[in-house]
Measured scan of single mutants.
Amino acid sequence: KLPPGWEKRMFRSNGTVYYFNHITNASQFERPSG
Rank of each mutant, 00 (worst) to 15 (best):
K1E: 13
K1I: 11
K1P: 13
K1N: 12
K1G: 12
K1Q: 13
K1R: 10
K1H: 13
L2F: 06
L2H: 01
L2Y: 04
L2S: 06
L2P: 15
L2V: 08
L2M: 06
L2G: 09
L2K: 15
P3T: 01
P3W: 01
P3L: 04
P3D: 04
P3Q: 03
P3Y: 01
P3G: 03
P3F: 00
P3E: 01
P3C: 04
P3H: 02
P3A: 04
P3I: 02
P3R: 00
P4F: 11
P4L: 07
P4D: 10
P4Q: 06
P4W: 10
P4S: 07
P4R: 07
G5N: 06
G5I: 01
G5P: 11
G5K: 01
G5E: 05
G5L: 01
G5Y: 04
G5H: 07
G5W: 04
W6N: 01
W6M: 01
W6K: 02
W6G: 02
W6A: 02
W6R: 00
W6Y: 02
W6F: 00
W6T: 05
E7H: 08
E7F: 05
E7M: 01
E7Q: 09
E7L: 05
E7G: 07
E7W: 04
E7P: 01
E7V: 11
E7A: 04
K8H: 04
K8M: 14
K8W: 03
K8P: 03
K8L: 12
K8N: 01
K8A: 10
K8I: 14
K8G: 04
K8Q: 13
K8V: 14
K8T: 09
K8Y: 08
R9W: 03
R9V: 07
R9M: 09
R9N: 05
R9D: 07
R9T: 02
R9I: 07
M10P: 09
M10W: 14
M10D: 07
M10K: 09
M10S: 07
M10G: 07
M10V: 15
M10Q: 12
M10N: 08
F11P: 03
F11E: 13
F11V: 12
F11N: 15
F11I: 13
F11A: 10
F11W: 11
R12Q: 14
R12H: 11
R12M: 14
R12N: 15
R12A: 15
R12T: 14
R12G: 15
R12D: 15
R12L: 15
R12P: 15
R12Y: 14
S13N: 13
S13W: 14
S13V: 13
S13A: 10
S13Y: 10
S13P: 14
S13K: 13
S13R: 09
N14V: 04
N14Y: 09
N14K: 05
N14A: 14
N14G: 09
N14R: 09
N14P: 03
G15K: 06
G15N: 08
G15Q: 06
G15S: 04
G15T: 05
G15V: 00
G15I: 07
G15E: 06
G15Y: 10
G15L: 05
T16N: 10
T16A: 12
T16L: 14
T16I: 15
T16H: 11
T16S: 12
T16E: 10
T16D: 06
T16M: 13
V17M: 05
V17S: 04
V17E: 09
V17R: 03
V17L: 02
V17Q: 05
V17A: 08
V17W: 09
V17F: 11
V17I: 11
V17K: 03
Y18S: 00
Y18Q: 03
Y18I: 07
Y18W: 05
Y18N: 00
Y18A: 00
Y18T: 00
Y18R: 01
Y19G: 00
Y19H: 04
Y19D: 02
Y19A: 00
Y19N: 00
Y19E: 01
Y19S: 00
Y19T: 00
Y19F: 07
Y19L: 00
F20M: 03
F20I: 03
F20G: 00
F20K: 02
F20R: 00
F20W: 08
F20D: 01
F20Q: 03
F20L: 01
N21D: 04
N21M: 04
N21T: 05
N21V: 06
N21L: 08
N21P: 01
N21Y: 06
N21K: 05
H22S: 13
H22Q: 11
H22K: 12
H22D: 06
H22N: 12
H22F: 13
H22Y: 14
H22R: 10
H22A: 07
H22G: 08
H22V: 15
I23H: 08
I23A: 07
I23D: 08
I23T: 07
I23W: 06
I23S: 05
I23N: 08
I23P: 03
I23M: 08
I23V: 10
T24G: 06
T24M: 02
T24F: 03
T24K: 02
T24D: 05
T24N: 06
T24A: 02
T24P: 03
T24Q: 08
N25D: 06
N25G: 15
N25H: 13
N25A: 06
N25P: 01
A26Y: 05
A26K: 12
A26S: 11
A26P: 02
A26E: 13
A26W: 06
A26M: 14
A26D: 09
A26F: 06
A26V: 15
A26T: 14
A26L: 13
A26R: 12
S27E: 15
S27D: 04
S27Q: 09
S27I: 15
S27V: 15
Q28P: 05
Q28M: 08
Q28L: 06
Q28R: 02
Q28Y: 04
Q28N: 03
Q28E: 04
Q28S: 09
Q28D: 01
F29Q: 09
F29M: 08
F29H: 07
F29T: 09
F29K: 08
F29E: 03
F29Y: 10
E30F: 06
E30D: 11
E30H: 09
E30V: 06
E30R: 06
E30Q: 11
E30S: 06
E30P: 10
E30L: 08
E30A: 04
R31E: 10
R31Q: 08
R31V: 09
R31I: 11
R31W: 13
R31G: 03
R31N: 07
R31P: 11
R31M: 10
R31D: 09
P32G: 05
P32K: 00
P32A: 00
P32L: 00
P32V: 01
P32Y: 03
P32Q: 00
P32S: 01
P32I: 04
S33Y: 13
S33R: 13
S33G: 12
S33E: 13
S33K: 10
S33Q: 12
S33V: 12
G34T: 13
G34M: 12
G34H: 12
G34K: 09
G34Q: 10
G34L: 12
G34W: 15
G34P: 12
G34S: 11
G34V: 11
